[in-house]
Simulated scan of single mutants.
Amino acid sequence: MGRGRVFHALAALLLTLAAAAPGARAQPLAIGLTAPLTGPDAAYGLGLRHGAQLAVARANASGGVAGRPLELLALDDGGDPQRAAANARQLLARGAVALTGVHGASATAAVAEVLAPTGGEPPRAALVGPATGAEPLRDPPRPGVFHLRAGVAEEASAALLHLDTLGVSRYALIARADAHGESGRERVLFELTRIATRPVASERLAERATPAEVGRLVDQVCALRPEAVILALDAVQARAALAAAHAQPCATHYLVFSEAGAALAGRPPGSIGPHPQAGLLVTQVVPHPGNALHPLVAEYQRALLVHGTAGAPGASGAPAATPGSHASLEAYAATQVIHEALRACGREAGRACLLQVLPTRTFELPGLKVQFGPAQRQPRPFVEITLLDGAGRLRR
Score class of each variant (00 low, 15 high):
17 L>W: 14
25 R>S: 13
30 A>F: 06
44 Y>H: 01
45 G>W: 06
47 G>R: 12
50 H>W: 08
57 A>H: 11
63 G>N: 14
73 L>C: 02
77 D>Q: 10
89 R>C: 01
95 G>M: 09
103 H>M: 12
105 A>R: 02
106 S>T: 08
110 A>K: 09
115 L>V: 08
122 P>F: 08
125 A>Q: 10
132 T>C: 09
135 E>A: 11
141 P>K: 04
141 P>F: 02
150 A>T: 05
150 A>R: 02
152 V>Q: 15
152 V>I: 10
155 E>N: 05
157 S>T: 15
179 A>D: 15
186 E>V: 10
190 F>A: 14
197 T>D: 03
220 Q>S: 03
225 R>C: 01
235 A>K: 00
245 A>T: 05
252 T>C: 01
253 H>D: 00
257 F>C: 09
264 L>T: 09
265 A>R: 01
267 R>M: 09
270 G>L: 12
275 H>M: 13
276 P>Q: 07
282 V>E: 10
283 T>K: 07
287 P>C: 06
298 A>N: 08
305 L>I: 08
312 A>T: 15
317 G>Q: 04
318 A>I: 07
329 L>S: 05
335 T>W: 01
344 A>Q: 10
356 Q>M: 02
362 T>Q: 12
366 P>D: 03
370 V>P: 11
372 F>D: 11
376 Q>K: 12
377 R>F: 12
386 T>D: 12
392 G>N: 10
